[in-house]
Structures are given as C-alpha cells and as structure tokens.
Design a binder for these strands. Structure first.
Lengths: 314, 314
DNA sequence: TGACTGTTTATTATCGACTAAAAGATGGGA
DNA sequence: TCCCATCTTTTAGTCGATAATAAACAGTCA
C-alpha cells in the first residue's frame, strides 16, 4: 500500500475513436467515382449518405478530402468529378476496419489455431500487444465472446480458455438439434403462401446445380449450407434460437476453413442429405422431416468430432 | 472537422479500481472478530485468505486497517483481538459492491420497472450519471446484457430497448421448456446412486414443510423454486442450457419481486405442481415426468404473461 | 522442514480524456 | 415548399493511467 503516486501532470498520448468509418466511406466514394464519367456530378450529400449508409457528417468529411486531393471540384451544390482515382488514392483495407472487427478476426484465429491450450489463462495485456489494440478492446471482446462457452471467468477476473473440446462440440450439437427440430415442426406447418417455400425451392435448385458440378464447385457448399440452415432456424421466430444459430454458424464456418480432409466427399454426402431433408420438408410430413433433420445433424456432429481428432488430438 | 485539439497537457483526475473487495473483506473480518472472545488470535494470513476467498494481499490490507483502528494488535505472528467492533466500524454496504454489480442491479430495476418504453434509445451518458458510474461501465454492461435479447444494437452503435414484451416472454418460455424437458429425460435415467436423488429428496421435504406453513412462509417459495429447477437443469451437463437457466432465473426473480398480486395463491399452486413433478421424477417414469414438467411450465408461462398484463398494459 | 510473514511483480478493474460520427438546428436557394 | 449545405450539439468508441488485487518470490521462525 506504499505511496506510489506519480506526478499528476501527464502528457496526453493516444486514445481516440478511430476514423475507420471515414476511411471506408472515402474508399467507397472513390469506387463510385471510378464508375462514373469525368465531369459528372456526384449527387447531393443526403443521397450519398443514404447510399453508403453513413451520416452526412461523414460524407462531408469524405467530400472535403476528395476535394483536397483534386479528385472532385466542389462548387456550391455541384461536385464535379475531376480525375480517375489511382490505387494509391485508396486507404489501406486494414485502416477501414473498426477495432472491434480487428479484435474479432485476430482472436478467432488465435483461439482456433493458435497455440492456446485448454486450461490456459488469458493474458489480456499480452493479447493486446499482440493484436495491436488496447487492453480495453480485448476486455470488451472477451466479455462478449464468453457467452459462446469457450471461456470461463475466474473469480479473480482473469479468463481461462476452456478450449474447443469434444465436450463442447457435443453440447453445441445437442442444442442445435433441439432448436432445429423445433424449427422444422414450425416449418412444415407454414401455409403454402408463406415466402419460405419459395426460398426453399431456390435453395433446392442451388443444391441440384451444385451437385452436378460438385467436382469444381464443392467449395461453394459452406455458403449454401449456411443459407439452408439459417432459413430453417429463422422460422422459429425465436430470438434465442436465431442467436444460437449465429454461434453454430461461426463455429462451423471456422471448421470448414480448418479441416480440409476429404472435403469434397463430405460435401457430397451433405448435399445428398440436404436434398432428402428438403424433399421431406416439401412433403409437409412432419415426422419424415424431423427424421431427416436428425439424420443430417448426426452426420454433421460426427464430422465435427472427427475433424477434432485430426486437428487437436487432445 | 475544425481543429479543436486542446492542449496536450492534462491534469490526471480520477480513474482507478475500486477497493470494494478490501472493504468487504474488512467487514467480514469484523464479523469474525465479533464472534470470537477478546484476546483470541485470528489465525494466519493464508488461513484467513482461504476462508474469505481473497488473496493474502487483501487480507494483509484488512489486518493493517484493523490494527490501525486498534481492533487487533499485531505482534509478530500474533493477531490479538483487542475490542468488539461497533456498527460505525463497518464500511457501508454499498461500498462493498463492485461497480459491475451496482450497474447490474440498477439496470435491471431500470429496465423492468423504470420508465423505459420499447423502442426507446438508451443514452449511456445519461444512465452513467443516473447510476453514478462511468460510461465505460454502462457500455460494458450493455454489451453483456444484449445477449439476453432485450436490447438491440443500432448501426450507429447506440442501443434501443426492445422491451420486456409478451413476445419476449413467449420465446423465453419456449426455450425453457425445450431445455427442461431434455434435462428431465436425462434426470430419470440417472442411476440410483447419483447424488441428485438425495438432493431431490431434500427439496421434496422442503416443499412439504413449506406447504404446511404456506400462510406465513410463502415468501420463501421463490428460493425453493430456483433450487428445484436449477437441480434439474444442471443435470443436462450442457453449458448452454445451464447458462440459459441463469437468464430464466434472473427474469423470474425480478418478476417475483414485482408482481405481488395473488402471490400466496400462485405459490400454493406452484408448490402442488412441484410436488407432483417431483413424484413423477422419483417414479423414474419418463413420460409422466415430462407431462408434469410441461404442465408446470405452462402454468409458469401463463403466470408470467398475466403479470405483464397487470404491470405493463402495452 | 514446512508453514508463516515480508516484499516484489504481474494482471485486472475502472475511469475520464479525447475525437469520430451521428443527430439536430438554422438559414438559403431553386 | 422542399431540398440542400453549413453550423452546433449530442453520443459513442478507443485509449492509457492508476490503484486494487492476485500471484510469485524470498527470507524467517518454530
């Protein structure tokens, strides 16, 4: 408890909101410029703001920057394009991401195929340095991420990695099945007039197309898988189920990227299961649809568990 | 974008970790002191630390404070009790709570029976002032709380209250039933040797006792309700289900405090349902147990929805 | 030798400072 | 009258500083 007070006079060093939104907006404006002929008008500020989904304040800042670099000439209400943008006009991609996104990306990478072991304590200062952000940003992210059940808070406040274990995969799959089965029950009872049936037809068609060209295009499957399951889960009309599917989606997406063993075959099998599952839904036969749902999710779980054997023989 | 940069020289004013843990530890020590005779030794630092579940650093700080106020006399390894603590020796209760707990309490109060309307935007600065904490604390709490589905993030970053609506109650109850039914299936299959059967017997006994004296002790029901359902949900061995029950628990706890209409009758009914539910579990009859589970959760949902009619006729 | 205390080091919690960005107010021109 | 641009006010995101706490280390006494 010694008196370690430093001088109260401090020089302010950093700490401010990043202007990632401005930079992204500026880049978007450049892209817009490059598609319009020189001499054209860019349109009014409110229009641009609505189009790029930012406030007018930000648009004005971007326009000012464009004007300063002689990309446009502002004259009253006119914003005349002066020249084509060149690559060096753009801000680097990395600077257009908000800090929270950067942390998310880096952290997912760190936890999924970093060197972190189950039971390991997380050092937020170390992570902050590694990711090039402040400890506050790390802290905030960990807080949100903890809801996914891969972290645990110790009474002292620090976090420990529970790890992406088989137990985790089992628990995740269990809830997934509960939720999707419930959604399926809702799904088959929706009236023929509901828009989901049309969406399902489109997804069915896309599956058939992918199946025909699976040799070349099998890498497109994850996105289709995501669309299909999301369609089903969204019919639950339950925010908890929909939110949970976001977690599922994240986990499976990460794993698709990781485990490339037998990828093509696994995707082929899944396409077949999906088609049967879709047909069962279309038949409006509840029991049949649930049976296909169970069968498919069983396969998915088995695949997930097997991939963990390969990647992390713990 | 005007140049509004202030002078880079700043005087550091506030910002530090609160010493709530120290104060709570100090109070706990006082309570310990008051139960031991004067002249006794308090025991070693490591023992005290383990007993109060804090670090030795904190214990040492508390002991130093006790010594400074002549409550104990430290002599080498001895810590001799000098006098009985008086009420004014204690720190006020409020100062022993970490900021996060304060925010949680105040926020739950604010959202459940404050004047906030669905669709309203949350002003974090305003809330911070109202709660007497920093905006960072509010921000952090909102981040975590958003997972409960009562808030929604706007693209601009601000939060809007979705409100504690009937729709929310319906979705919450739906997931609750899915999870608890699954837990019940696990429960009845547990071997007789499992400790849960003993816990269930105790809970059964407590229900019977409470039933006999329901006139006077009906206020004890919420705690018992919590114990019972938690026991069931914990058998799921699924972190998502257990976590979700924490939300359920919080919501129902808050509502127990709010809606006092027909309280005694509602509790009586619930006790009856619990007893039937418990008996069904003890019979190991899966279908019967599930039926009673459904029946009870239906009542609970109806009660929750009805109380919302009374409290917030939206 | 083993548990205790004194000391040092590591790590987290909390805050206010500061700017980016959004939102609102005001006045002007078609 | 409506859209637009300029100006002002409000709100949110990010940070580093610092004390509180935990954890590790190092002597010391029975």
């Amino acid at each position: 408890m010694g008196a370690r007070y430093a001088s109260p006079i401090r020089v302010w060093i950093g700490a401010m909101k990043t202007n990632a939104i401005f930079k992204r907006t500026y880049n978007s404006c450049l892209k817009l410029l490059s598609t319009e002929p020189i001499g054209d008008d860019l349109g009014s500020e409110p229009h641009l703001a609505a189009r790029l989904d930012v406030s007018r304040t930000t648009i004005r800042a971007a326009l000012a920057a464009l004007s300063a670099r002689d990309l446009i000439r502002v004259n009253g209400r006119e914003k005349i394009i002066q020249r084509r943008p060149v690559p060096s006009d753009y801000y680097p991609e990395i600077e257009t991401e908000p800090v929270s996104d950067i942390v998310e990306k880096r952290f997912m990478q760190w936890i999924l195929h970093g060197d972190c072991k189950p039971g390991q304590q997380i050092n937020s200062l170390e992570l902050a340095r590694q990711f090039g952000v402040s400890t506050s940003a790390i802290r905030e992210y960990l807080n949100g991420f903890s809801q996914f059940g891969l972290l645990e808070r110790r009474p002292s406040g620090s976090w420990i990695v529970k790890g992406f274990t088989k137990e985790f995969a089992r628990e995740l799959s269990e809830v997934r099945e509960l939720f999707e089965l419930r959604s399926v029950q809702r799904f088959v009872e929706l009236p023929d007039s509901d828009a989901v049936w049309g969406s399902l037809d489109i997804i069915n068609r896309d599956h058939l197309r992918l199946k025909e060209d699976v040799e070349k295009r099998h890498a497109d499957f994850p996105a289709l898988d995501e669309r299909f399951h999301r369609l089903i889960n969204n019919t639950s009309r339950n925010r908890f189920m929909v939110n949970f599917y976001a977690l599922i989606s994240m986990i499976f997406h990460s794993h698709y990227q990781l485990s490339r063993v037998d990828e093509k075959e696994r995707h082929s099998v899944a396409i077949g299961e999906h088609l049967a599952y879709i047909a069962a839904l279309q038949s409006r036969d509840k029991e049949l649809a649930m049976a296909h749902c169970r069968a498919h999710l069983n396969t998915a779980r088995a695949t997930l568990l097997r991939s963990m054997d390969v990647n992390a023989p713990a």
